[in-house]
Amino acid sequence: MSTNELYLSSVKKQFLYYKTLGEKAMDQLEPEQLFTTTNEDTNSIATIVEHISGNMLSRWTDFLTTDGEKEWRNRDLEFAHNLLSKEEILNSWEKGWECLFTALNNLQPEQLSDIIYIRNEGHSVIEAINRQLAHYPYHIGQIVFYAKQLKTNDWESLSIPKNKSNHYNSGKFAQEKSIKNFTDE
């Protein structure tokens, strides 16, 4: 497998990991908690999802051929509390991720050095992917943190549970060394 093929495989797994992380956090909440804000400057989880989805649709639609900031995108409207139910939140979430994975699955390894534009600024395809691989986990971290705060108790850890690192590590080191992505489990 070429380096470019390895890279594409890895980023697909990373995006899927963060998608799953966001879903597992939201699944632990009551529907009304998805709309909670703590002050005027705080976005609800619903708003964060709407923003992520809007960004994904803009960036990944016609990924190689049109600017990543589409003329039809209204970024400010993504923060106007348009999603009104958990079903709408999850539909928006899925629509964005489907657009992202369709674009990634259609990418050829030799296209990774091609130049695309976001707001008229040129990026190699690798740079554009990395930009989004930093952006989405930033917001998914917000979702996870917020969900954990809203849940208050009975939170099911999405990583190594507190005070369980030694147990987790001993299980890992008891296995044979292997080459795999941490998301393969």
Rank of each mutant, 00 (worst) to 15 (best):
T47M: 15
T47G: 04
T47C: 11
I48F: 05
I48K: 00
I48N: 07
E50V: 00
E50N: 15
H51E: 11
M56N: 15
M56Y: 15
L57R: 12
L57G: 06
L57K: 13
L57Y: 02
S58L: 02
S58P: 01
S58R: 04
T61R: 04
T61N: 05
D62S: 14
T65K: 12
T66S: 07
T66Q: 12
D67G: 05
G68W: 10
G68P: 07
E69V: 11
E71I: 11
E71S: 14
W72G: 05
W72K: 03
R73D: 10
R73S: 12
N74G: 03
N74P: 00
N74D: 15
D76H: 13
L77R: 15
L77H: 09
E78W: 12
A80V: 00
A80Y: 01
H81Y: 08
H81R: 13
N82D: 10
N82Y: 07
L84G: 02
K86D: 05
K86W: 00
K86R: 14
K86L: 03
E87Q: 13
E88F: 01
I89S: 04
L90Q: 13
S92I: 06
S92D: 09
E94M: 08
E94N: 14
K95N: 10
K95H: 09
K95S: 12
K95P: 00
K95A: 13
G96L: 08
W97Q: 03
W97E: 00
C99I: 03
F101C: 05
F101K: 11
T102F: 00
A103C: 03
A103Q: 04
L104T: 08
L104R: 02
N105L: 08
N106R: 06
L107C: 03
Q108H: 10
Q108S: 10
P109F: 12
P109G: 01
E110N: 14
E110W: 02
E110C: 06
Q111V: 06
Q111I: 06
S113E: 15
